Deep mutational scan, measured.
Amino acid sequence: PTIVLKVSPEELKALEKAGVEIEKIEKNEDGELYITLTPEALKKAGFE
Rank of each mutant, 00 (worst) to 15 (best):
L33P: 01
K44H: 15
E29V: 13
G19S: 05
T36H: 11
I22N: 00
K6Q: 08
P39Y: 15
E32V: 10
V20Q: 01
L5C: 07
I35K: 00
I25L: 08
T36P: 00
E48K: 02
A45D: 03
K17L: 13
E40N: 02
E23T: 09
K6W: 07
L37F: 02
K24L: 12
F47V: 07
T36S: 09
K24G: 07
A45I: 06
G31R: 03
E48I: 15
G19W: 03
K13C: 09
L5D: 00
E26G: 05
E40K: 02
L37T: 15
K27G: 09
E40H: 03
E21G: 04
G46V: 04
P1M: 12
L42E: 02
V4L: 09
S8E: 05
S8Y: 03
K44P: 05
V20T: 05
T2Q: 09
K44A: 15
E26K: 04
K24S: 11
S8I: 03
L12F: 07
A41M: 07
E40A: 03
V20L: 06
A45G: 10
E10N: 10
A45T: 04
E48L: 15
K27Y: 15
K24W: 10
I25P: 01
D30A: 13
T2P: 08
Y34H: 09
K27A: 12
A14F: 12
E10F: 09
P39C: 15
I25E: 03
I22K: 00
L15H: 01
T36R: 05
K13N: 12
L5G: 01
I22E: 00
A14M: 10
E16K: 12
E23D: 08
E32Y: 13
K24R: 11
E40C: 04
T36W: 14
E16Q: 14
L42A: 15
L33K: 01
L5S: 01
P39R: 12
I25C: 04
K13D: 14
K44V: 15
I3H: 10
L12K: 02
P9A: 12
I22R: 00
I25K: 05
K43I: 13
K17V: 13
A41H: 01
I25W: 05
E29C: 09
Y34P: 00
G46M: 06
K13M: 11
K13G: 08
V4G: 03
I22F: 09
E21R: 04
E23G: 06
K6G: 04
E10L: 14
K17T: 15
P9Q: 13
E23Q: 11
E10M: 11
P39V: 11
E40P: 01
E16R: 10
F47M: 10
E40S: 03
E11W: 14
E32H: 13
L5M: 12
V4E: 11
V20W: 02
I3P: 02
I3C: 12
V7S: 02
E11D: 09
I25V: 11
I22A: 02
K44I: 15
A18P: 00
I3E: 03
K13I: 11
K13T: 11
I3Q: 05
L37K: 00
P1E: 14
S8N: 07
E11A: 12
E11V: 15
G19Y: 04
E29L: 12
E21M: 07
L15E: 00
L12W: 06
T38C: 04
G31K: 03
A18Q: 10
K17N: 11
E48S: 10
E29S: 13
T36C: 04
T38Y: 05
K44E: 15
L33A: 06
I3A: 05
G19Q: 05
I35A: 04
N28M: 13
P9D: 11
E29D: 13
E29Y: 10
E29M: 09
G19F: 07
L12T: 01
G19R: 06
T38H: 09
S8H: 07
K27H: 13
A18Y: 09
E29G: 11
G19A: 06
T2N: 13
T38K: 07
A41P: 01
S8L: 07
T2L: 15
V7N: 00
V7M: 05
G31I: 01
I35Y: 00
E32W: 12
N28F: 07
K6D: 01
L15Q: 00
L33V: 14
L12N: 00
V4C: 05
P1G: 14
I35E: 00
E21P: 08
K24M: 10
K17A: 11
V20N: 01
N28A: 10
V7I: 13
G31S: 04
Y34G: 01
I35P: 00
L33G: 01
P39S: 11
V7Y: 01
I25D: 01
I22P: 04
G46A: 06
A14T: 14
E16C: 13
A14W: 15
L5W: 11
L42Y: 15
D30Y: 14
L37R: 00
E10K: 09
E21S: 05
K6N: 07
P39G: 07
E48G: 10
E26S: 09
D30T: 11
N28D: 10
A45P: 10
F47L: 14
A45H: 04
E48M: 11
T38L: 04
F47W: 14
